[in-house]
Design a protein around this nucleic acid. Structure first.
Lengths: 241, 241, 241, 241
DNA sequence: CATGAATGAGTCTTCATTCAT
DNA sequence: TATGAATGAAGACTCATTCAT
C-alpha cells in the first residue's frame, strides 16, 4: 500500500522507450497556423489541462508531465510557455480573477437597488453549477481548493488568493450593510458574521456538490441554497430560539 | 573494503545530524518510565504532531521527518509505531471517528424529541470552535481536508472517509425527515437538498473559520451559524421570493 | 519562508555533490550527437554497468546509483530510461534470452543429425568462456545468478527466468531422447535425470569458473567439461559399478 | 511493482502495535529449565531459523527480525546471543565446517584404498539429498549459496568460505592424483581440471535439485550423479571424440 | 516551437544495531 | 534472559527544472 493521493498511476508509465506511446499528434505538426495561433492554442490547452488536474488532484498531486501529456505536449513545452509549475497556477488564477471575481463583483454592483438582488446576483455569478461554461465552475473550485492547499504557506500565491477572496468579502460586506440599512436583512447578527456565513454557505456548497459528484440535482441544489441563504439572512428571519 | 554484503558499518556512524536542530533529548533516555508509558507518550506525541501538520500543510505536504521531529523523535520511530505514512493517517481517522463522528451521531440520537434540538445537537457536537479540547477541532478539520485531498484517489482511505461522512448524512437525513413530519422544518425543499445544505454550511463554516484564523469571534460565529441554519431550515422560513 | 507547497527551490541547489567523485562530464554535454545516438549510448552503458554489477554483487547488492555512476550518469537517468530497478534487470534478461537462449536452442536444432553433435553445440553456445564477446558470458552468468536470487520470490522475474530455463530443458530433453533412440546415449538412466545432469554440469562449471576467477585454463576447462559430459552420457559409458 | 527478492512480505507487517500478534510462547517462559539449557535451546532455534532463511532467501534477503520471530524471540535476543547478523552466519559456517567439511574430508581419508571408493565417499557425504538429517543438506547449500553471495566481497566471511572450499579441493586433488597413479582415473585430463569438474558437478547438482524443488526423484538423481561422475572420470572413459 | 536527455534534491521506507529496563 | 523503544544510514523512486538541439 504505497499509493495515496492520486498515486503513481500505472498510466504515467505509458511512457516507456517510446514504443507503445499513444498516438499523439504533435501539437506543432498541425498545418496552416501562424506561430501566434499555435502559441495561443498550446497555451490554452495547457491551461485547461492544468485546471482539470489541479481541481481534481490538487496542485501538489499534479505533475507537470501529466499536464503536458494531457495537452498533447511534453514537459519541456510547459517550461517554454510558463516560468514554472507555479507560473501555470498563477496564470490560471489570473484567469479566475478575470472570469469569476471581476464579473461577480461587477454583477453585485450592477444588480438592482435591493440588497437582496445583489446577494442573489452574487450567488448566481459564482456559478456553482453551469453547463454552458464548465471551465468557470472549475475556476471557482480552483480558487477554493488552492486557498486550502496554500493556506499558511507564505507563498506569493497565497497572497494573491487572499486578495481575491478579500474582494468578494468587501463586496459582500457592502451588500450586507446596505441590506441592514434598508431593513432587508436581519440586524441581530454582526455584519462580519453575516458575511462569513454567506461565504461559508457558498464554499460549503461547492464542497458538497463535489462530494456527491453528479448524484445531486443541480438546479434544485442551487435553488435550495438560495432559499436557505435568503431565509437565513432575511429580515423576516425567526428570532433567536 | 566492502564488508558484509554492502553493510552499514556501525563504525562510521557519528551523529552528523546536529545541524542546528533543536537540541533533542533522545526520547528513550527519559528515565523512570515503563515501556508501556513510553509507548503511549510517544504514540500520542506522534499523532498530535501528525494531526497538526496534516491539517495545516496537508497530507502530501507533510513529511514523516517533520512529524517525527515535532514529536522529538526520528523518522524510524514513526515506522516503529506505524506501518507507514498512511498508517498514521488511518490511526488519526480512527481517532476522529471515535471522538467526532460517534459522539455526534449519539448526541443527535439522545437529543430531545424535537428535530430542532437534534439539529442543534449536531451543530454543537461538531465543535467548530472549542477551547477545551482543541484536538477535536483539528480532527474535524482533518476529516474535511482529507476528504478533499483523497477525493477520487481510489485509496482505502477515501473509502473510510466516505463511510464517516455517510454516517453523518444518515443521521441528518433522519433528523430532517422527523422535522418535516413534525412540522418543524420546511417542506418545500427535498430532504436530500436540505441535508446537503446543512452539511454545506457546516463544512463551509470550518473553511471560513480557518480562513480568518483567529480574527473571528468564535462564540458569535457559532451563534450566527446556528441562527442561519435554523432560520433557513425552519418551518417559519419565508416562502420563495 | 516556505514556497509553493513545500517546494524544491531551484535556488539553493548548488552542486554540493562533488565530494571527490571521479570528475564526470555530464553525458548530455557531449557534442555532435543526435538524440537517438545519445539514447542508445546511454542505454547501452547503463545496461553494461548494470550487468557487471548484477553478476558480481547480485541484484540486491547493486544500487541504482552505482549503476548510474559507472555509466557516467546519475540516478535520475536510470529512471529516465527504465521503469525501475527491476526494469533494468528485465531488459537485461530480454537481452540474455535473445543472445544466449535463442542462439543456443537454434544451434542445437541446426547441429548435425547426431545427438552428440547437438549436445556439443549446446555446451559450446553456452559460451562458458569467451573472449570475443565477453558480455555473453556475463549474460549467461546473469541468468544463473538471478535464478538463484529470485528463487521462491513469486516475482514476475522469477517466472521469466523459469521460462528461459524451461526452453533449455526442452531442447536438451529432445536431444537426449534422440540420443537414446539412436543408441548414442546410455539408456540406463532416465531422460529427466540425464537432462538434469547436463544442466547441473553446465551450471556447476559456471560456478567453478567464477570461483577460480582466472586461475583456470579456459580452453582446457571447456575441453574437460565436454569430455566429462560425453563420457558420462555416452552409450559406451561403463555400466553401474 | 516494488517487490522483488523475497520482497517485504505483508507477513512482516504482522507486527502492528502488538494486538494481533500470533500467539507466541515467549521462549524464556518455559518452565523447569536451567539458564544453560535455555541458552542452548534459544541459540539452536535461532541458528535453525537463520539457516532456513539464509538458504531460501539469501543472506541479504533475510532480516534479523524474521530470524528472531521464527525462533519465537525478538530482534534483541539475536544480539544477545550473537555479535551481529554476520555473527550468526559465522556460527552457521562453523557448524557447516564441523558437520559437512570435516566429515567429508574424514570420510575420504577413511574410505577404502581405491580412489574410486574415495570419490564415492566424497559424493555421499556431501549428502545432496537426505531425509535423516535435513539440516546437513541445508548447511551444504549454505556454503554454496554464501560463496556466491559473498564472492568478491573482501569480507572475512569470504575468506572462511574459501578456506572450506580449499579443504575440499585439497582432498579431491589428493584423491584424483591417487586415482591417476593407480590407473583408476583417466590421465588425459589435468588433475586441476578433473577436480574442478567434480566440484562443478557436485555444486551444479545442488542447483538443479533446488531448481526442480521436489519434482525430481532423489535417489535416482543421486545415482545418476554418481554414474555420470564415475563414467566421466573413470579410466574406462571414452577417448576424446 | 518543442523535444528529449539528464539532473539532483527530496521523500518514503527498510533494517542492522544500540540500549535502558 | 530478553524485550521493546529508538536511531540513522542507506536505498528506491519521483518530480520540478535545465538545456542542447
Amino acid at each position: 500500500m504505497r499509493k495515496t493521493p492520486r498515486s503513481r498511476e500505472a498510466s504515467a508509465r505509458r511512457r516507456r522507450r517510446g514504443q507503445g506511446r499513444v498516438s499523439r499528434i504533435p501539437a506543432q505538426a498541425r498545418p496552416g497556423r501562424t506561430k501566434k495561433e499555435q502559441r495561443e492554442i498550446s497555451v490554452a490547452r495547457l491551461l485547461e489541462a492544468a485546471l482539470g488536474y489541479f481541481v481534481t488532484e490538487g496542485y501538489r498531486g499534479t505533475t507537470i508531465e501529466r499536464i503536458a501529456n494531457a495537452a498533447g505536449l511534453t514537459k519541456g513545452a510547459v517550461y517554454f510557455y510558463f516560468r514554472s509549475k507555479a507560473g501555470v497556477l498563477i496564470r490560471l488564477l489570473e484567469w479566475a480573477e478575470e472570469s469569476i471575481i471581476d464579473p461577480t463583483v461587477q454583477a453585485i454592483e450592477e444588480a438592482g437597488p435591493q440588497a437582496t438582488d445583489r446577494l442573489v446576483a452574487f450567488m448566481h455569478t459564482q456559478s456553482l453549477v453551469t453547463t454552458e461554461r464548465p471551465e468557470r465552475t472549475a475556476l471557482s473550485r480552483l480558487v477554493l481548493l488552492m486557498s486550502l492547499e496554500f493556506r499558511g504557506t507564505d507563498d506569493p500565491i497565497e497572497k494573491s488568493l487572499d486578495k481575491m477572496m478579500a474582494r468578494l468579502d468587501a463586496a459582500l460586506t457592502e451588500t450586507v450593510e446596505m441590506g441592514k440599512r434598508r431593513g432587508e436583512f436581519r440586524r441581530d447578527l454582526d455584519t462580519r458574521q453575516l458575511v462569513a456565513m454567506i461565504m461559508s454557505i457558498n464554499q460549503g456548497c461547492f464542497l458538497e456538490w463535489d462530494r456527491h459528484a453528479g448524484t445531486l440535482d443541480g438546479p434544485a441544489f442551487v435553488r435550495a441554497m438560495r432559499l436557505m441563504v435568503l431565509a437565513g439572512i432575511g429580515a423576516a428571519a425567526a428570532p433567536e430560539t
